[in-house]
Design a protein around this nucleic acid. Structure first.
Lengths: 226, 226
DNA sequence: CTCTGGATTTATGTATACGTTAATGTATAC
DNA sequence: GTATACATTAACGTATACATAAATCCAGAG
């Protein structure tokens, strides 16, 4: 079978999950806002059943909250939430970096990381923060993907989702991430060299620094909720 | 308000989640088995709607799979699954151990860990594997609880759920966990001493060893699926 | 005897109706 | 003027009916 790029037929519940995620990330359903199931059903052009099922799934993913007679509430992300999420990401990604170093991956297997770093550098030179953020995200996703651990991949994706809005806001508040790019390069070098401990340690330090920077930024700007 | 031990009123979906979890862990719904929604609804004494919603939630938790026209399938846990889960637990718990060491916790805050270790030692002396497993579980849960990271706590609980059946089976196959108890004690000592790096490293080594033991045991006994 | 095509069955996916319950608003008593 | 109790309302939780699509079964041809 040829690689089918056909969008496989999805049921309405899956469609509702995707649409709601889109509405949340785009800010059309802002953090803290409440929405009745009926209202969302009309908006998505389907009945309450799939909308309700989608809401329950998104609740499990930590994006919203289903409350009796109050509708679904889009969960805001507090500074404390950000700290929690960064810690989880740090723990999992650092392990992934160590495992990648131990896996003895050849050059081609590391091409994804290499490309992400190159793109980050290009974006940085051009001062294009959006592109940098995309490539940075790609680096972290790829790092975890190399672990081959499906649970790790899923958890990291979930956590990344939860901070997506906050990152978009702080993207233009933070200093240009020059140090960050150096860190990424060092992590890749350690993985190439098969040095698991260095890969782990550098990545952990990188993430911890990113967390500190972000938290300080949020507090400076009085952004306690996002 | 006095501490209300009244079981707070739960809706049928929550009840269905609990009952289904119970049926899965008890083995009444064995790994790999398929069950129609209607059938489960009759069994739980409610209509399909809450059963279906519960199934979707349990699917998000990785305990089963909802397939169109094939009913829900209780997911078996393969050796590879166990490896993945142990790696996630290792990463998160190790970080938690390090954070606990850095938190400067006093003796009373560590009482839970202390008690768990004491219970493990008692159970070991008596050769009571069930009690040992319970106390071991408590140690790991408590370690993560000390981090105060609600996401970490939730993820660890989820992962622990998925290996619960497998652990019950291997509990009587494995050698008596003498080394394990020594490890726990060392982790607690490092936390007490505020030595984050040692706490992290020892705990990681402990978990990695546990994973190796378990995987070897499963393969020796041809238990590829649980 | 095997394989193919179509009819049939059946379980899910979805819509909808209804009961339940909590929130809101109003009226009355203090 | 305030507080309380009751009526009203509105949204969810649940049951159920129905549409849809896949799996099964059977017949007929090769």
């Amino acid at each position: 079978m040829l690689p089918s790029n056909q969008p496989k037929p999805k049921n309405n519940t899956e469609i509702a999950v995707e649409k709601l995620r889109g509405l949340i990330f785009s800010g059309e359903l802002p953090a803290g806002s409440n929405h009745l199931e009926t209202e969302l059903a009309v908006r998505l052009g389907m009945s309450r059943t799939p909308v309700r099922e989608a809401a329950l799934m998104l609740e499990a993913q930590g994006l919203l909250e289903v409350r009796a007679r109050k509708g679904v509430r889009i969960l805001p992300v507090s500074v404390q939430d950000m700290e929690e999420i960064y810690d989880v990401l740090t723990a999992l990604e650092s392990m992934a970096a160590g495992q990648a170093a131990n896996a003895g991956l050849d050059h081609s297997a590391l091409a994804g990381l290499e490309a992400a770093i190159a793109d980050m550098e290009t974006a940085l030179d051009q001062g294009n923060r959006e592109d940098w953020a995309e490539a940075d995200d790609r680096f972290h996703t790829e790092l975890v993907r190399l672990s081959g651990n499906s649970r790790m991949i899923a958890i990291v994706a979930l956590m990344a989702d939860q901070v997506r809005r906050a990152r978009a806001i702080t993207l233009y508040l933070r200093p240009l991430p020059v140090k960050s790019n150096e860190d990424h390069r060092q992590v890749l070098d350690a993985i190439s060299a098969g040095d698991a401990e260095t890969a782990r340690d550098i990545h952990k330090a990188h993430r911890d620094a990113a967390k500190s920077t972000l938290v300080a930024l949020l507090k400076q700007n009085r952004l306690h909720m996002l």
